[in-house]
Amino acid sequence: MSSRFILGLVVLGLAACSPGEPAASAPPASQAGDSGRRETAVFAGGCFWSVEANFEAVPGVVAAVSGFAGGSTANPTYDQVVGGGTGHLEAVQVTFDPARISYRQLVDRFWRTIDPTDPDGQFCDQGPSYVTAVFASRAQKAAAEASRRAAAARIGPARFVTPVRDAVRFWPAEASHQDFAHRNPVRYAGYSRFCRRGERLRAVWGGAAA
């Protein structure tokens, strides 16, 4: 992380993907027409604040939980993951009703919320724990790969570096990391602006940016 970024966050009273004050959780999305069926999808898209916020309001999504995936350390803590050596990525487990939204639709949306041309992280969050991936089960793999090919064709396959990886165990993060954008809207908005998320997404995806 650059010294310029750290200084900017100090001025803004922010911290990159660090916990906020505990508060009430975000209200669940409206479940009108809920079929009662549940499936899960796991996405690593840089700071899990943003991935969680991007999925929570999507119709058909029941819950989005921040956590970690991809590494070898059991029950990892946030400090362990950002400290390095665990192999884990910050990730979000999305629980959804497949009768209302398909897995393919979720993956299609995910690409448009990240910069899949960055191999080292996302926006101002750089480092091993912030790299991107879709963790797909055996049943999900074909849909995830097809979605990736379609997205890569739009921006250039040689530039598209985010992989589809095999599903692994997901470990939820501490309670202080859940629902950050909902609980701390001013801090999150400042963080997002400072990292120029919207500007970069528009540069990559144009009007298709989510």
Rank of each mutant, 00 (worst) to 15 (best):
F5G: 15
E56P: 11
D166P: 09
A150V: 12
G8Y: 10
F48P: 00
K141E: 15
Y103C: 08
D97K: 00
G71V: 01
C47A: 08
I101F: 00
W111A: 07
A175P: 10
D166W: 03
P157I: 07
T73M: 11
V186I: 15
E145N: 06
L12T: 12
A189C: 12
G36M: 00
Q140A: 08
R112N: 07
D34A: 12
P19L: 01
T162Q: 04
R100A: 08
P116Y: 03
D115V: 05
G71Q: 01
S3N: 14
D118G: 06
P119A: 02
N184C: 13
A209F: 08
G45P: 01
V107L: 07
S50K: 09
W49G: 00
G190A: 11
F96I: 01
V11S: 12
R4C: 15
S102E: 06
V10P: 11
P163W: 03
C195A: 08
R37N: 13
S35F: 05
N75T: 08
T113S: 11
R112V: 10
T117P: 07
S30Q: 14
A16V: 14
P19E: 04
S30N: 14
R149E: 15
Q93N: 09
T113M: 10
P76S: 06
Q126D: 14
I101V: 13
F43W: 00
E145F: 09
A29V: 11
Y130V: 04
E56K: 14
G20A: 05
E174Y: 02
Q178W: 02
S35D: 07
R183W: 03
R148C: 08
L89H: 11
N184W: 13
F48Q: 02
G156K: 01
S129P: 12
R200F: 03
G83I: 06
C124M: 12
D115M: 05
P19D: 00
Q126Y: 11
Y130W: 05
R148I: 08
Y191W: 15
A209L: 07
R154A: 15
P163M: 02
G206T: 06
A63M: 04
F135I: 00
R138M: 14
L89V: 09
I6W: 13
S2W: 05
A32S: 14
G13D: 10
Q126I: 15
A150I: 10
A175C: 05
G85V: 07
Q178K: 02
E199C: 09
A150E: 15
A153W: 08
V107M: 07
R148E: 06
A143L: 11
R187L: 11
